[in-house]
Simulated assay, not measured.
Amino acid sequence: MKEITNILTAYQNMDPTRTKAALATVVRVEGSSYRRTGARMLIMDNGVWVGGISGGCLEGDALKRARLAMAQAKPTLVTYDTTEDDAYQIGVGLGCNGIIDVLISPIDATQPTAIDLLKACVSSARQTHILLTITQLSGEFNGLSIGGMYRYTGTGSLSIFGDDTVTAALDEVIRRYVAKGKSAPARLDLPDGRLLEIFVEVIPPVPHVVVMGQQYDVYPLVRLINELGWQATVVANPQKVTKAFFSQANALVPPAEFDTIAIDDQTAFVLMAHDFNTDRANLPKALGTKAPFIGVLGPRVRTERMVSELAAEGVFISLEERVHAPVGLDIGATSPEEIALSIVAEIKAVLSGRDGSSLRLRQAPIHERE
Results as ranks from 00 to 15, higher is better:
2 K>H: 06
3 E>P: 00
5 T>L: 11
10 A>T: 01
11 Y>T: 01
13 N>M: 09
14 M>F: 08
16 P>E: 08
17 T>D: 14
26 V>K: 03
28 R>A: 14
28 R>K: 15
30 E>M: 10
31 G>I: 08
31 G>Y: 11
32 S>V: 14
35 R>M: 12
37 T>K: 10
39 A>K: 01
41 M>R: 00
41 M>Q: 03
44 M>C: 14
47 G>R: 04
47 G>H: 05
49 W>M: 00
50 V>F: 06
55 G>V: 14
56 G>Q: 02
64 K>V: 09
70 M>H: 09
79 T>N: 05
84 E>D: 12
96 C>F: 05
97 N>F: 09
98 G>R: 04
99 I>L: 02
107 I>S: 01
111 Q>D: 07
112 P>Y: 10
115 I>P: 02
117 L>C: 00
120 A>K: 15
121 C>H: 11
122 V>A: 12
124 S>W: 06
124 S>M: 04
125 A>G: 13
129 H>P: 04
131 L>I: 11
132 L>A: 11
136 Q>H: 15
141 F>K: 05
142 N>M: 00
145 S>Q: 14
146 I>P: 00
148 G>V: 12
149 M>D: 01
151 R>Y: 09
162 G>C: 07
167 T>F: 02
170 L>E: 00
172 E>R: 13
172 E>H: 12
190 L>Y: 03
199 F>N: 03
202 V>D: 13
203 I>P: 00
203 I>N: 01
203 I>D: 01
204 P>T: 05
208 H>W: 06
209 V>L: 13
211 V>T: 07
211 V>C: 13
217 D>V: 03
222 V>T: 08
225 I>N: 11
225 I>T: 11
227 E>L: 11
233 T>W: 06
237 N>V: 01
240 K>E: 11
241 V>I: 14
244 A>I: 04
250 N>M: 10
252 L>Y: 08
254 P>E: 10
256 A>C: 00
257 E>H: 14
258 F>N: 02
258 F>M: 10
260 T>F: 03
264 D>E: 08
264 D>Y: 07
265 D>G: 05
268 A>D: 10
270 V>Y: 15
273 A>P: 00
280 R>K: 15
282 N>L: 15
291 A>T: 09
299 P>M: 14
303 T>I: 05
310 L>C: 08
313 E>G: 03
314 G>M: 12
316 F>Q: 11
317 I>C: 02
317 I>Q: 07
317 I>H: 03
317 I>A: 06
319 L>D: 00
322 R>Q: 00
326 P>Q: 02
327 V>W: 06
331 I>V: 13
332 G>E: 09
337 E>Q: 15
337 E>H: 13
338 E>F: 06
343 I>Y: 06
346 E>K: 01
353 G>L: 05
354 R>Y: 06
358 S>N: 12
361 L>H: 13
365 P>D: 09
369 R>L: 15
369 R>C: 11
370 E>G: 04
